[in-house]
Design a protein around this nucleic acid. Structure first.
Lengths: 182, 182
DNA sequence: ATTACTGTACCGTCTGGACGGTATTGTCAA
DNA sequence: TTGACAATACCGTCCAGACGGTACAGTAAT
């Protein structure tokens, strides 16, 4: 792959693309701009990602890996416990929200270019739902919690978030109650 | 405005743009294609909407009006009743889902072009949240229900929906329970 | 010699939008 | 009644710029 010490050019390029998607809007991510932002020549960019589609695939994979890593850490502790998976989801969102992690804006850039690029994310999401249902004490309630978290994550992505911090905290608290009540 | 008998050119153009956004993807909605689909020349399109931004503004307004109309009809019956607003939201989603109404794909085309175009939708959403809270018996639960509905609406928009019909029905049923339990 | 680029010069395509025309209808003075 | 003009609602063409992608010569490190 790459010398794991410093960030590889690939990583810098992916990071630059995600930043740009947030800054100039997901519809205006040009290869020239990405290369400039990443401190790489356009030739260099196309050396690493021969087409724009390959770059966008890498962005989607990056977001998924990021989430999966954090998720695996959370779930190792309470994998088999009743409602362990959905609890982990709530806690994970709470943590990301406290750390003011930005939304996964790279997804939109990929979606725009070609909806098929979302396929890996769909597969991941489906697996997540299966895991949630598998050890949920109340499947219906667990699904609602899952959907609410998705709402909390999607609304900012679509620039549609209107909740105050207090409202978000209130909702997250209620999600906690729902999963601990079982 | 226009003779209210036949659909005006403006309406045809907006409808064509929404359809195209769904068919070719929100990032590939060109004025030429919209004009062709609407049965109008490009000059005619530009006559009705002097810039692409104006067209996208009209699309956003169209989606909002559509939702608002249906919402007002629902809410007239149980406006002041406890949990009346959030109940109306659940029922409205259920109805749209049963009728297999497509997601508001025009939003994405607007978001891509210019995130500011989502502002009217944000204003509407904020008003909706205020109304929900105003007559909710349990604000936290009502917020969770609101977020779950948004999740149900946003996931298909992002091509991320992975739920089976049964799972969706189960979740909607649970939402009903949550609001009627108060 | 190979790897991993840099830098520059292009090419073809697509797209938003400007522009000049045109058909129809309405208005209104002579 | 009619001729002059104007507003409305388009049509069809053209163009400048942006963008994805190619090609290729050079270079510095391993």
């Amino acid at each position: 792959m790459a010398p794991p010490g410093r960030p590889s050019s690939r990583d810098k390029i992916v990071a630059a693309a995600v930043e740009l998607s947030k800054e100039v809007g997901p519809g205006h991510v040009s290869l020239d701009a990405v290369a400039q932002r990443a401190g790489v020549s356009k030739g260099g960019l196309l050396y690493n990602f021969p087409t724009k589609q390959k770059l966008l695939e890498a962005i989607v994979a990056h977001h998924i890996e990021e989430f999966e890593t954090a998720f695996q850490r959370k779930i190792d502790n309470n994998a088999d416990k009743t409602d362990g998976v959905i609890s982990a989801c709530v806690e994970l969102f709470e943590k990301k929200h406290k750390n003011k992690m930005p939304p996964a804006s790279g997804f939109l850039a990929a979606l725009i270019e070609n909806p098929d690029l979302m396929h890996p994310a769909r597969v991941f999401n489906r697996r997540l739902v299966d895991m949630i249902r598998a050890n949920a004490s109340n499947e219906a309630a667990a699904l609602v919690v899952f959907l609410a978290i998705e709402g909390l994550r999607c609304l900012p992505l679509l620039d549609l978030d209107v909740l105050t911090k207090e409202e978000r905290d209130l909702a997250v608290q209620e999600l906690h109650n729902m999963v601990s009540r079982g």
